[in-house]
Amino acid sequence: MSLDTPSESTAAQAEGGTESIDRRKLRWRRRLNALRSWGSLLKEDRLGQIGLAILAFFILVGIFARPITVEIGPVWSQVQPFSLAPHGYTDRVATEGLHGPTWAHPFGTTDLGRDVLSQVIIGTRATLIVGTIAAFMAVFIGANVGIVSAYYGGWVDDVLMRITDIVYGVPFLPFAIALVFILGATLVNVIVAIVLILWRGTARVVRSQVLSHKQRPYVESARAIGASDFRIMYVQIMPNVLPLISLYAAFAVAWAVIAEASLSFLGLGPQGMISWGEIIYDVRSAGALREAWWWVFPPGIAIMLFVMSVFFIGRSLEKVVNPDLRHGK
């Protein structure tokens, strides 16, 4: 699923570690190393910086888009009182529909007199929610399948990999469309549909990476001192494949956002919220594509920028995972 095929030469250098005192420290250092090396890479990687900046911007917009109120029974509390969006996304704020940009409505209004700017701001939330949750869940499942499969081998590996193969045979978008159509267009179903397919890439790559780690001396020695399987898998091996997992997580965010936008464009977006894809769907079903450029371009550009920022970050992560890609030094 990645743009380039990452190679398997990521192993952090500090392995071994039978000395009991330093073990924990070492492990942490190993974990930090990857982050640090990304940090230092980022200093020279303009695209990665731009990506991070754009992403940070969208995250802030998403959080402050509308006030957030938490309700537990009759008790409620407003944990985030700010509202970046001047209006609610269903509020009819203009007395005249389908109007181009004005000072009051910088992105113009929809056919029903709603403020496009507010919709785009609030739509950021749906994108963030679907993107992060779906990607996190997909990568979580994928990484676990990969690790378990590679570590235990044998019939466990066989079964899990055959399942992965089957999922590889399912066309992504058609499946998501069918599933969401059948189960109903809710936020949960949209995320489930995306996750059910998206984990497959991570599973395969993590498996092959873990296979190579399994042979290394640090795993042998851990086993020799009687560490449990769980401990070896998640404490010893996991940190070494973490950079790769985060790379796949970045791409998973991109695919999840594109998938959500595509579903929304077909009118299958999560109900009760607005997303960028849904705004474009509204433009289309209002029949306003021809004239209302102010209505269709902001959400479209927002999708593009968001996904692009994730790709930029992914590319710089890729250089951590696959040092061969660092060139020009």
Partner: peptide
């Protein structure tokens, strides 16, 4: 088209959430 009538309804919904920071129904 004119939306004068519907604007009123929407305004009421919009202001409700800005009333306070926490409370008990």
């Amino acid at each position: 088209r004119s939306f004068l009538r519907s604007v009123g309804v929407a305004g009421a919904i919009g202001s409700a959430s800005l009333a306070g920071c926490f409370g008990i129904d």
